[in-house]
Amino acid sequence: MKPNYRRCISCRRLGLREEFWRIVRLFPSGKVQLDEGMGRSAYICPQTSCLQAAQKKNRLGRSLHGAVPETVYQTLWQRLTVSNTQENQI
């Protein structure tokens, strides 16, 4: 089976789908959530630089064709800090 490749909306890096975080604007409600759901999707690297650029330049909003709530960014920043602390403990 062919691997699923995706592109980061921030740094434009191409990689396997499992390497990215998925942000979804649900159809038909337009609600934005993480990881699951049917609708328009955007992928972003789990890195500080990508998340900063995506938030500063509204790359998620433009990619999803809608407004992204601040709570989504807060959740992504929390995930980033948790993953960084786990890497440091190894």
Rank of each mutant, 00 (worst) to 15 (best):
L60H: 00
T81N: 05
R25K: 15
R6D: 04
A67R: 11
L16K: 11
E36N: 09
E19T: 00
Y5I: 06
P3W: 07
S29R: 02
T85C: 04
C45W: 00
K2I: 08
K57N: 15
K56H: 14
Q86H: 14
S41W: 04
N84Q: 15
E19I: 03
T71G: 09
T75S: 07
C45S: 06
Q89A: 13
G30A: 11
T71S: 15
R12Q: 14
P28T: 01
G39H: 00
G30V: 04
E36Q: 11
A42S: 12
F20W: 02
A53K: 13
V72K: 02
F27K: 13
Q47Y: 02
R25H: 08
R59V: 00
T81H: 13
F27D: 15
V24F: 06
T71A: 15
F20L: 02
I23T: 06
Q55P: 03
T71V: 14
E36W: 01
E18T: 05
T71H: 15
L26S: 09
K2R: 15
R59F: 11
M38F: 13
N88F: 11
L14P: 04
S29W: 03
V24G: 04
R79F: 00
K56G: 12
R62D: 10
C50K: 07
G15I: 05
Q89I: 06
Q55C: 06
P3F: 05
S29D: 11
I44S: 07
E18N: 07
G30M: 10
G39E: 06
G15D: 12
R79S: 05
G15S: 12
E18Q: 15
K56I: 01
E18R: 10
K31F: 01
E70T: 14
L14I: 14
L60S: 03
L14E: 10
Q78Y: 10
L64W: 07
R12L: 07
L26W: 03
Q74L: 14
S41M: 02
T48I: 05
V32R: 01
M38G: 12
Y5V: 02
I90L: 14
L16P: 03
N4R: 10
T75A: 10
R59K: 15
K57Q: 14
Q55L: 03
I90Q: 04
K2L: 02
R17T: 09
C8H: 06
S83Y: 07
A54C: 11
H65M: 12
T75N: 09
W77M: 04
S10A: 15
N58D: 13
R12D: 11
G66V: 09
S29H: 01
V82D: 13
E18D: 14
C8D: 02
S29G: 01
I9S: 02
S63T: 10
L60K: 07
Y73K: 01
R62F: 11
S49T: 01
I23C: 09
R62T: 10
P3T: 01
Q86N: 13
N4I: 08
I44A: 00
T71Q: 14
V24P: 00
M38L: 11
M1S: 13
N58W: 00
V24M: 01
C11G: 10
Y5K: 05
